[in-house]
Amino acid sequence: MTIYTVTYTYDENRADDRAGLLPEHRAWLTGKKDDGALIEAGVYTDSAMALLLFRFDSILTAERELDADPFAVAGLITSRVLHAWKPGWGPVAALAEA
């Protein structure tokens, strides 16, 4: 499995819409965590952005799964950037080897 870093940039003009969909988004994240795909997720405190770490078998799978995020379905994400990432050391590095 490959680890992917994912950066979301949110539409700052739709913060209320994002807040309204937050329970569905968190349920989606919980499902990804439960199936072993989600490693970590969190928002930046200084911007309308988030960083997520996932394990997927391919970039195509990553894109398909991320397209199903309720925030993406609702058009609340203005930019999504994915990178395959190989951690060199630390707790996430062990996940990359699994």
Rank of each mutant, 00 (worst) to 15 (best):
T2R: 08
I3E: 08
Y4P: 04
T5Y: 11
V6Y: 03
T7M: 14
T7E: 15
Y8S: 03
Y8N: 05
T9D: 08
D11Q: 01
E12I: 00
N13Y: 00
N13I: 00
A15I: 01
D16E: 12
D17N: 02
D17C: 01
A19K: 15
A19N: 12
A19T: 12
G20A: 11
L21I: 05
L22N: 09
P23F: 12
E24I: 00
R26C: 03
R26Y: 11
W28T: 09
W28Y: 15
L29G: 00
L29R: 08
L29P: 01
T30H: 10
T30C: 04
G31F: 08
K33N: 12
D34W: 07
D34H: 12
I39S: 02
I39L: 09
E40Q: 10
E40T: 13
V43L: 11
Y44D: 14
Y44T: 09
T45H: 12
D46K: 12
D46F: 15
S47H: 10
A48K: 01
M49E: 15
M49D: 15
L52Y: 14
L53R: 06
F54R: 01
F56E: 12
S58I: 12
I59S: 15
I59L: 15
L60M: 10
T61I: 11
E63K: 08
E63G: 02
R64L: 10
E65Y: 04
E65F: 07
E65I: 13
E65W: 07
E65R: 06
D67L: 04
A68Q: 12
A68V: 05
A68D: 14
P70W: 06
F71T: 01
A72Y: 06
A72N: 12
A74T: 04
A74C: 01
L76A: 06
L76E: 10
S79L: 07
S79I: 02
R80V: 03
R80M: 03
V81R: 10
L82V: 13
H83L: 13
H83K: 15
A84Y: 09
K86Y: 05
K86P: 00
K86M: 11
P87W: 01
P87C: 02
P87V: 01
G88T: 11
G88K: 03
W89K: 03
G90V: 00
G90D: 03
P91A: 15
P91R: 14
V92I: 14
V92C: 07
E97M: 08
E97N: 09
E97F: 07
A98K: 11
